Amino acid sequence: MSDSVLFDSVQLGPYTLKNRIVLPPLTRSRSSQPGNVPNDLMATYYRQRAGAGFMVTEGTQIEPRGQGYAWTPGIYSPEQVDGWRKVTDAVHAKGGIIFAQLWHVGRVSHTSLQPGGAAPVAPSAIPADNVKVFIETGPGQGALVLPSAPRALTTAEVKELVQLYAQAACNALEAGFDGVEIHSANGYLVNQFISVHTNRRDDEYGGSLENRLRFLREVTQAVADVVGKERMGVRFAPLFATTEEDRVYLGLVEEDPHTTYIEAVKVLEEIGVAYLSLAEADWDNAPELPEAFRADVRKNFTGKVIYAGKYTPARGVRVVEAGWGDLIAFGRPFIANPDLPERIAHDWPLNPVDSTAMYGGTDKGYTDYPTCQP
């Protein structure tokens, strides 16, 4: 099976992508302190990977309360905007197209990461007990700990958060990004509103599926009003559990994930966003998305579809040729191989990932991976 289909050009909103290969959001925790400011090292990292047809930044918190892990960058302060401008300038100089992923972790945080040591905020006061967060314990040092118990947002605060997403989108444009992606996956804030496991609200944002999708709808529309619907996407991580072990995923496995996420996809179609990114479970023996779900996504969404999650080039080709997806994201391979598109094109061997340098640290395991050609 030829990988040539991965090197077709694709139209994504106003942008003509040079290939179907995507650098997906990958948390690396290399921002400068204090202030969680993007820096020159991060600009080098993204510039090295600008051979991707499309790039999305690591999750970028929209406000101080949105942080759930040490040293992750934000996009709410002037210093952060200036830092991200270094990244976008570096990527654009190499002909790349890059979107910022707008992120709020909600309940998946710790009081040590929150302003004033306050409790994290969430749709409902339900702790996250199947995940750990990474906190700073000293200069350049950290530890994994359980998230702190959250407090429930008031209705007025939920509406204020919608505007914080819009402001973050405005900041992203100021920083030179080509567009934005809303992080609505992996058990973080937008996902928490969607899920019956984390949303027990009795106001307009809770109860029925329509109400639980209201925050997604309002955030997506508010961001589209800022950047334009053709310059934005949304990421989901629907999980179709097949065993009890599979169901332990931040506690957000829906009883009927097909219905839940197809209705969410319909919201995106109504607003008219440029793309939908589907992050599949990536642990060993994780369940794949059912073909019926992939087909239903295509039936209900006319924008581009990105797939991510332990993809090989061959698997990516199968998804594209089946008509289910348009773009394929490669996470860990892109971490270790800054020239990944060239390696795929020429069938060159891949560097292994240095698992000890995934989060935090220096250039080691970040910008020092060798390319096949100097």
Rank of each mutant, 00 (worst) to 15 (best):
L113R: 09
V108E: 12
D89R: 06
L144I: 05
L146Q: 12
A100H: 12
V121P: 14
G96V: 11
F99G: 13
L146T: 11
I98Q: 14
H110A: 07
D89S: 12
A149T: 09
F134Q: 01
I135A: 07
P139M: 11
A128F: 08
F134L: 14
V131A: 13
P147I: 03
H110C: 10
T111S: 15
V121Q: 10
L102K: 01
S109P: 05
D89L: 06
Q141P: 11
I98H: 01
V108K: 02
K94F: 03
V133A: 06
G142T: 00
E136F: 15
W103T: 01
F134D: 09
S112G: 11
P115D: 01
A119G: 10
V91E: 15
R151Y: 08
H110L: 06
F134H: 11
T137H: 12
K94I: 04
P123R: 06
V133W: 01
E136G: 03
P115S: 05
G106T: 04
A93E: 13
T111I: 10
A143L: 10
R107K: 09
V133Y: 00
A93H: 05
P139R: 04
I98T: 15
G106I: 02
P115C: 00
V145H: 06
S124Q: 03
G138W: 06
V108F: 05
P150H: 04
P120N: 00
G138Y: 07
V133C: 12
P147C: 02
G142A: 04
A143P: 07
V121S: 13
P147F: 00
A93M: 07
T111V: 15
S148L: 09
